[in-house]
Design a protein around this nucleic acid. Structure first.
Length: 152
DNA sequence: GCCAACGTTGGC
DNA sequence: GCCAACGTTGGC
């Protein structure tokens, strides 16, 4: 089993939005970065555990846990001209973009903030903390996962 | 709102 | 294939 971290802006889709979805499940659409897509398409498996990270907000940080419940399939929002993430170069016969379905597992008892994570030398290799990192999906190794949960 | 970092685009 | 211009991300 693998561990991941996925970012979302709480103003757009936060942990509470996932909690309130039917079945507490939602497709993770709108990823338009090849590196992030490749991880979803090639490496994300059912049962993988994912940190839900709130980005671009007052207190960016890890707020909850979800799990992968459906493996990669075409991101249909790329075919919709009215969708914010429409991509005219992607077509249903040969989709460029993929998504997975994720299900709410639990909220953390508190927001483990980016500010706090940066202070932990144990997390030196965490992609989130690397300079200039902009990926919206990134791997977390087992040690990092356990360490972060230990901060809760 | 600013701006650093980085990905993408398109002219050549 | 190079690289300048441009767009986006996301912390601050």
């Amino acid at each position: 089993m693998n561990y991941w971290l996925m970012k979302s802006e709480p103003d757009t889709f936060g942990i509470d939005d996932l909690f309130n979805r039917p079945g507490q499940t939602e497709h993770w659409d709108g990823v338009r970065n090849y590196q992030a897509r490749n991880m979803m398409r090639d490496d994300m498996k059912i049962g993988d555990q994912v940190f839900f990270y709130h980005s671009n907000c007052d207190e960016p940080g890890i707020v909850g846990i979800m799990q992968v419940v459906r493996e990669a399939y075409p991101d249909f929002t790329a075919f919709d001209p009215d969708d914010k993430h429409f991509d005219p170069k992607s077509n249903p016969d040969k989709p460029t973009w993929y998504m997975v379905d994720v299900k709410f597992v639990r909220k953390l008892s508190r927001n483990i903030s980016l500010r706090e994570l940066k202070l932990k030398t144990e997390l030196g290799d965490l992609a989130l903390l690397r300079r200039g990192n902009r990926l919206s999906i990134m791997p977390v190794n087992a040690e990092q996962w356990a360490f972060i949960l230990g901060l809760e």
